[in-house]
Amino acid sequence: MLRIPTKHTSQRQPRLAYECAVGELFGRAPIYDTIFSCVSPRTLVRIGRSCRTAYAASKDFSHRAYNIHRHLSRFLSEPLNFRSLQARTGTLIAGSNALQFLDRTFYPDSDMDLYVHPGHVREVLDYLVDKEGYKFRPDSTQPKDYREIVSDEWDGTQIRDESLDDDELLLYYQIRGVESVLSIERRGRDGLLKIQLIVCETSPFDAIINFHSTCVMNFIAFDAAYSLYPVGTFEKRETLSVWRARPLHDLTVEIKYGERGFAWISTLPAGTSPQNSPFYPFTDRTVGDRYTWKLPLDTRGVALRSQMNPSSSVFQCDPVIYNGWALERVQYGMGTVYKTIKSSVFRYNYTTTNYKLNFKLWLFAIEQGFLSRILLENNLLEKESWPWYVDTIVA
């Protein structure tokens, strides 16, 4: 029997046709995988907000596209154990490796850079050598055995720079905050694999925020991946130079990232404001703020850090979230500025643009550090029970 459409059914036809088309597009993984693989992270999120079917499809795609264990498996045979090591040590994966993960791309000849807090370098190196089969490859200035230059003893009770002066120096490799670089290698399925351990003078974040440009200011912690300039990096495909002391004729970095699809910007034009720039200049920033892209990672099976001693508070997440900075005009362009918080009452060092907070923490560190040191010198406190404060920091 032929059914003649009524006015009511004719009004529903466009919507039914739309739902049918959406079901065809986002109801089959091979189809929506092809679509999503060609869009930026922001577009992926926006498509997912269009309807329930698209949301489910985008979630399924993201779960597979941002599979951290698959990403790490190129360099590590036990990614979950390595992430537990990250949780214990606050080690961050940064550089082009983190960029590849967030950009869902692959650079065949790239290595993996690990940024390590002071006091954890030996533990990280021993794990990669003993558990993952890597071998130390010293440069011309380093001994053959890394144990000669990386001690397994670190005294966190020693006085650090607890003054108000932030007299940072440009150290090795023309990157502020980098003390040394240790290279390890092993043979993998795809050839030679190389990991570089960046021994940080103060903290991993202090070194990362002084990278050559914004497109590599991304990092992977044990619990989340972060991009500090996601719009400029993944939407505009631009990278803003952050000034550092390197020869003007050295165009290696510009060429390399130009070949990877990023337009190099030397500086921001006069009159640029935070509202009209994807680099948010002249703005106090913190890790995880509304300008940051934070991609939570599945932490099931990751062994979280235990309480360091009965007097210490517990790390609930990676301490990188307690850092802050700003992008300002410096000598020859744009640069990152901040004050460094360094004290033996904190297990790690931090950065902030909040001068009032910096002053209050300085006073707290002086008083608490003095008290703890008096107790230590009079044998009323053991080094193993030295109180370290964690959640006191609010960048």
Rank of each mutant, 00 (worst) to 15 (best):
I149C: 07
Y66V: 12
D152F: 13
F36D: 15
D130L: 07
P30S: 03
A56Q: 13
Y127N: 04
Q142I: 02
S10Q: 10
Q13I: 12
D103E: 11
F82L: 07
D126Q: 14
H71P: 03
L80P: 03
H63E: 15
S140G: 06
D155A: 09
E153N: 08
S10H: 02
V45D: 14
Y18C: 10
P108G: 06
P108E: 02
R46K: 10
R137C: 05
E123G: 03
P108F: 01
A54W: 02
Q142W: 00
Q142S: 08
Y146G: 05
A87C: 07
K144H: 08
A29P: 02
K131M: 09
Q86T: 13
L85T: 00
R46I: 11
A56D: 11
P79I: 09
P143M: 03
H63R: 12
F136M: 05
R88S: 13
D152W: 11
S77G: 09
G23Q: 01
Y134G: 12
S110I: 07
R64N: 11
I31C: 09
D126R: 15
P118K: 00
V121A: 07
R137L: 06
V22E: 12
V150P: 03
H8V: 06
S10C: 07
E123P: 00
H117D: 10
L128D: 01
R52E: 08
L25I: 12
S50C: 11
